[in-house]
């Protein structure tokens, strides 16, 4: 019982000369058209979107050359006297965004936790689409809602803040006379605080959607293990869901912050324009970069337009930085590793 290997070296009778098929990843025919066509589409989108960035950069150069560093330190924006600077506007932008995030963050976190952990299973889909709907409501409607309905209540709250927490500079309103029986109500409305409320309504659903998505990807096995070990619902959330979703919480908050920085119309409807750095967020008046652009583009000369574009570039770079950091944080977290 022996087996013999066929003698491969010896030429077989009647053998056809077989060659290995050439293997190539290069696409041919319709595939080549598809590959190159989609590459062209991608390139055109690159040109369009990249063009905006390049254009903003180029347009901003004359402004930066002309005003130099004082563009970032000057508070006034008065083209008539040739003093243009974004210091106050930049601070105002961050004040509004920070107020918005202080309000939106706890609400977004709680809503995301409620939807993913506490809500009855039947209601979940409805609640998710309600949050999405909230994100889709046009910002001008939130602006209307806050400017005409919430504003008086917010002003009352500002007065209360001034009375009880007036020793904090962010709540102290000079000239507000909070302690007198009839405070100067006009000093308390139209403030960064009120604008922040409107912006928070806009960005809350966005942060909530990101957080909820990450929470819903928590491995059920780990959750069940925590419950099986005797954890209460809150214990399970604190030890499993929140650590797992940390990346989503941070990332969602930063994404919302990026959106809050660029919000225009609600802020333009609420904030009464003024160009000075204010320590207090509840004091009347303020300005953000986007509301500055919305208010001033109409009567702008060419050089002033370029200054507005420079301000827009600064805003874009800030939001870009924040969004990139957010994307890195979200991608680094464990969430969404497997989709297959």
């Amino acid at each position: 019982m022996t087996t013999t290997l066929p003698d491969l070296d010896r030429p077989q009778p009647g053998e056809v000369d077989v060659k290995a098929r050439a293997i190539s990843r290069r696409s041919t025919g319709a595939d080549a058209v598809f590959t190159h066509g989609s590459r062209v589409v991608g390139a055109s989108v690159l040109v369009i979107t990249g063009g905006v960035g390049v254009f903003l950069g180029l347009q901003a150069v004359p402004t930066f050359k002309r005003y130099g560093l004082s563009f970032f330190t000057e508070q006034q924006w008065s083209p008539d006297t040739d003093t243009i600077g974004i210091a106050a506007v930049l601070v105002g932008t961050f004040q509004v965004a920070l107020v918005a995030m202080v309000i939106a963050f706890p609400l977004a976190l709680a809503t995301a936790l409620y939807i993913s952990e506490y809500a009855p299973a039947r209601l979940k889909a409805t609640l998710v689409s309600m949050v999405d709907l909230m994100a889709a409501v046009p910002s001008v409607i939130y602006g209307l809602f806050v400017a005409l309905l919430i504003m008086p209540y917010a002003a009352d709250l500002s007065i209360w803040f001034d009375r009880t927490l007036g020793w904090l500079p962010i709540f102290a309103v000079p000239g507000g006379e909070a302690d007198s029986p009839l405070p100067a109500l006009s000093q308390y409305g139209f403030s960064s605080f009120v604008a922040g409320i409107a912006v928070s309504m806009m960005v809350m659903p966005m942060a909530c959607a990101v957080m909820r998505q990450v929470f819903s990807q928590t491995p059920p096995g780990e959750k069940e293990a925590a419950l099986a070990l005797g954890a209460s619902t809150w214990g399970m959330i604190r030890t499993v869901v929140l650590p797992f979703g940390r990346g989503g919480i941070i990332g969602g908050t930063m994404l919302a912050m990026g959106r809050a920085l660029g919000e225009t119309i609600a802020v333009a409807l609420i904030l009464s324009p003024s160009f000075e750095i204010k320590a207090s967020v509840t004091e009347k008046g303020g300005s953000t970069i986007s509301s500055l652009i919305a208010n001033r583009f109409g009567d702008a000369s060419t050089s002033q337009l370029s200054a507005l574009l420079a301000a827009g570039l600064v805003l874009f770079l800030i939001t870009l930085l924040i969004n990139t950091l957010a994307a890195i944080v979200v991608n680094r977290s464990r969430s969404g590793a497997d989709t297959d």
């Binding site: 989108v45 690159l46 979107t49 990249g50 905006v52 960035g53 903003l56 990026g258 920085l261 660029g262 919000e263 225009t264 986007s290 652009i293 919305a294 583009f297 507005l308 574009l309 827009g312 570039l313 805003l315 874009f316 939001t319 870009l320 924040i322 969004n323 990139t324 994307a327």
Partner: peptide, 15 residues
Amino acid sequence: LVEAMTALPSIVAGL
């Protein structure tokens, strides 16, 4: 680049 440009504030697109 596309991910970066989602950060573009809408007012800047208009401008």
